[in-house]
């Protein structure tokens, strides 16, 4: 693994540091190593969904009951989830971080995958703040995302530009 990579251990450390209790998620091609780490942690509950929009209402329910959930999905699923993000997260003032796999991200902006083309435009249209992380040295932005979510009581997105760097090793 390149030293420029974002390691799943780093992501996991950030999650623990910020008190995440539950991860509501749907696998994408980049997060399998993180899944194995999460699964091995007895203090973390994983709630798998069959469609990304479902994760929003589950997250809202967990928050209503006093847990600190995080969502882990891919940008394609985020695009599909627009109305659920609006209604169940933004509408209910749920302070949650969404870790979003940035499929198609190329850093230089010449995309061949429209999932990447519309990702940041979608977030700007919904007025959802976002941070981009590409390697371990960016990981403190995850904590900044949690802080911003708590401060604004709104969802904040962390875009994981992992396809470029091989997050999945």
């Amino acid at each position: 693994m390149s030293s420029e990579a974002l390691s799943p251990e780093t992501v996991m450390r950030q999650m623990k540091q910020n008190g995440v209790t539950d991860v509501v998620w749907l696998p994408d091609s980049e997060t399998n190593w993180l899944f194995l780490l999460m699964k091995a942690d007895p203090d973390l509950r994983l709630v798998g969904v069959t469609r990304e929009g479902h994760a929003c209402s589950i997250t809202a329910g967990l928050y209503a009951g006093g847990r600190k959930p995080m969502m882990l999905i891919q940008n394609t699923g985020m695009l599909e989830s627009g109305d659920s993000i609006r209604g169940w997260l933004m509408g209910l003032n749920v302070p949650v971080v969404l870790m979003v796999g940035y499929r198609g991200y190329t850093r230089h902006g010449v995309n061949t995958d429209t999932a990447a083309t519309y990702t940041e435009r979608f977030l700007m249209a919904f007025n959802i703040p976002f941070f981009l992380i590409e390697n371990d040295s960016d990981s403190d932005r995850i904590t900044k995302a949690f802080e911003l979510a708590d401060k604004t009581r709104q969802p904040v997105v962390v875009l994981v530009g992992d396809e470029y760097h091989g997050f999945n090793r």
Partner: peptide, 19 residues
């Protein structure tokens, strides 16, 4: 009310897991 249709069951699940 109706935050977004189809989500009540997810909200109920989340709340039940949390409490």
């Amino acid at each position: 009310g109706d935050p977004a249709m189809g989500g009540h069951s997810g909200f109920g699940l989340g709340l039940a897991l949390a409490q």
